[in-house]
Design a protein around this nucleic acid. Structure first.
Ligand SMILES: [Zn+2]
Ligand SMILES: [Zn+2]
Ligand SMILES: [Zn+2]
Ligand SMILES: [Zn+2]
Lengths: 162, 162
DNA sequence: AGCGTTATGTAACTATATAACAACGATGAG
DNA sequence: CTCATCGTTGTTATATAGTTACATAACGCT
């Protein structure tokens, strides 16, 4: 199984994309009895403002109105909640966060991150997971969490640089 | 091919371990015309002070003598050099650095990091690399660099917690 | 309403990393 | 050997990322 999110499809209607994500989040939280409060919802929406990972402080800036800034903690708490619920993934190599297109099914998170456009494509490839699990098993290592992040150049950017 | 470093072998003589790493570094830099200066050598030695990833500021503390501290930049510059030469890997999920046991052959870096003892085992498993490359190819993505980090519990710690 | 739990506010602080510019020092050409 | 050059290091300031401690407010149940 390989699930793919295409961030920069031609004709991509991002408003719809965000609405879908927020809708799934509402439903998921409701079904779990988790509270998607106003702040958490706003942070989730801001994480989804594009398909490139967004840093906590960028979100913090987004939330400022008329010189009034929320505290970093407010954002980090919301992000912690969203990550816990699987609505958002953290990209370790960028210290940034990105919305998950498929929060209903638990999965690690494997990402291709373009160095030019900054977009991140989420994969969840069974071959990769299986290979990692096999290695861990060989070492007698019990896996909690895996981080797979690939930096490089996406198709679109490669073509446009040619 | 699966290369393994066992950080916590019983009877592991760490002095020898460090000497070996420094020797390989000397030879490698000499063969490349790269300059392993006193500072760089010291930072490499401190990275190798154990088999757990060490943060830049921890190294900075290590280097302080009688209240005299070097600047962060000094450490970061040395680490940049060491990473560039493949003598050290950066662990993204910990913002920390660890010595590479096999700097002579270029390789990404795949790590199992124990949540209890903090030790990191470096793997370089061809199955994992192949699976990732295949995914990237499927997406038309050109790979620069891959980050594979697995967090969990090592054999030793699992047994001692039992 | 009363009460425990969960979420948010506020402030100060720690940790991680980079920028800009000056000074030093090894190396090689002349 | 001397000077010019380039890579390395020093110094100071600043940017970015994340946490601790404690107070207050909202919610959800009885
Ligand atoms: Zn996901
Ligand atoms: Zn791109
Ligand atoms: Zn290595
Ligand atoms: Zn362990």
């Amino acid at each position: 199984m390989t699930t793919i999110t295409a961030p920069a499809e031609t004709g991509h209607d991002h408003g719809r994309c965000v609405d879908g994500a927020l809708g799934r989040a509402e439903a998921l939280c409701a079904s779990r009895g988790a509270r998607l409060t106003a702040i958490r919802r706003q942070v989730l929406e801001l994480v989804w403002s594009g398909h490139r990972p967004r840093g906590a402080y960028a979100i913090l800036d987004d939330m400022a109105v008329e010189g009034k800034r929320v505290a970093p903690l407010t954002v980090y708490r919301a992000l912690d909640f969203l990550v816990e619920q699987g609505l958002v993934h953290r990209i370790e190599s960028l210290n940034a966060y990105i919305g998950c297109p498929d929060p209903d099914h638990a999965h690690p998170g494997q990402f291709l991150v373009c160095r030019e456009c900054g977009n991140a494509i989420e994969l969840n490839d069974a071959r990769v997971s299986a290979a990692i699990d096999a290695c861990a098993r060989d070492q007698g290592f019990t896996v909690d969490r895996t981080t797979v992040e690939v930096r490089g150049l996406c198709t679109t950017c490669r073509n446009s640089l040619a």
